[in-house]
C-alpha cells in the first residue's frame, strides 16, 4: 500500500526578519502513521496553514526536522497532493485540462493520465463537465475538481487546507462525506486542516487541537468511531462525547 508516513520533531516557523519576526508555529512534534487520516483544528491564525505549507515543502522550517517516509524533506514532492481552500483552477483551461495539470507538469504518459482523470471526474460526478471552463461550475463542483487534480498523480499523502472552507454548510457536509468514502477507498495518508469540529471528527482517525499562535499541539484525540462513517455517525453518543471533549479543549484557557 502506497501511503506515506510523516514525522515532525521540534518544528518551528518564524516569519520575517529579526526585530519584526512573527513566531507562527511550534515547536511541533507529530508522527503520522501511513494510511491514517489526521484532522487539525485550532484558532484562526494559530499556524495551521503554515504547518501544512511546511509539510508540503512549500516553505522551509525555521528549526526542527520533517521526515516523510523516513527521509528528510527537501521541497515539494510529486508524492503529495494538495487541496487548498480555494479551488485554484486555471480559468483558461477546461476542467479536464485542469485535472490533467499534474500529468502535464510531471510529464506522465498521456493516455493513462487521461483515463485516470476521466475516471476521477466520473467518481465525483463531474464527467459531463470535463470540457467546461471552471466558471461554469458551482463552488462545490470546483472543489471536487480540485480533489480530482490532487489525486491524479496518485499521491501517497493528501494535504487539505480547509478544502471545504469556502462552501455553504450543505455542500460542505456532502463533500466531507464523499471525501470520507474516497479516502477509505484509497487508503492514503491525509492531513486535514479545518475550522469545523464535526468535520474533523467525522473524517479523522485523530483530531489534533492546536493552541493560539505560536501554534503548538495542545491535544491529540483518537477518534475510535467505526468506519464507514455517514450522516448518522454525527448522532452517535461517542461522536457527541468526542465533540464535547474537543470543544472543551479548544475553548479552555491556556493555563488550565
Amino acid at each position: 500500500m502506497a501511503a506515506a508516513s510523516l514525522s515532525l520533531s521540534g518544528v518551528t516557523k518564524v516569519y520575517g526578519r529579526t526585530g519584526t519576526e512573527t513566531h507562527a508555529l511550534g515547536p511541533i512534534d507529530l508522527t503520522i502513521e501511513p494510511g491514517t487520516f489526521v484532522s487539525v483544528v485550532g484558532p484562526s491564525g494559530c499556524g495551521k496553514s503554515t504547518l501544512l505549507r511546511l509539510v508540503a515543502g512549500l516553505e522551509p522550517a525555521s528549526d526542527g526536522r520533517i521526515e516523510r517516509d523516513g527521509a528528510p524533506l527537501t521541497g515539494p514532492s510529486r508524492e503529495v497532493g494538495i487541496v487548498f481552500q480555494d479551488h485554484v483552477l486555471f480559468p483558461w483551461a477546461s476542467i479536464l485540462e485542469n485535472v490533467l495539470l499534474p500529468a502535464e507538469v510531471l510529464g506522465l504518459p498521456k493516455a493513462p493520465a487521461r483515463a485516470r482523470a476521466l475516471h476521477l471526474l466520473e467518481m465525483t460526478g463531474l464527467k459531463d463537465f470535463a470540457g467546461a471552463r471552471p466558471q461554469m461550475l458551482s463552488g462545490g463542483m470546483k472543489q471536487r475538481a480540485a480533489f480530482c487534480r490532487a489525486l491524479l498523480a496518485d499521491p501517497k499523502m493528501l494535504l487539505l487546507d480547509e478544502p471545504f472552507g469556502a462552501l455553504d454548510a450543505l455542500t460542505r457536509e456532502e463533500l466531507s462525506l464523499e471525501l470520507s468514502r474516497l479516502w477509505q477507498e484509497l487508503g492514503r495518508t491525509a492531513l486535514l486542516i479545518t475550522h469545523d469540529i464535526e468535520e474533523a471528527i467525522l473524517l479523522g482517525d485523530r483530531v489534533i487541537i492546536m493552541s493560539a499562535r505560536p501554534g503548538r499541539i495542545r491535544a491529540d484525540i483518537p477518534v475510535d468511531l467505526a468506519r464507514p462513517r455517514d450522516v448518522r455517525t454525527a448522532q452517535h453518543p461517542r461522536f457527541i462525547e468526542i465533540k464535547q471533549q474537543v470543544r472543551d479543549l479548544i475553548f479552555a484557557r491556556p493555563n488550565d
Binding site: 512549500l58 510529486r78 507538469v105
Partner: peptide, 16 residues
C-alpha cells in the same frame, strides 16, 4: 500566489 504554490507543489520548473 495560490496558483504559484500549486505549480510549485507539483514540482514544476520555472520554465514550466
Amino acid at each position: 500566489r495560490n496558483m504559484l504554490d500549486l505549480m510549485r507543489s507539483l514540482t514544476a520548473t520555472q520554465l514550466s
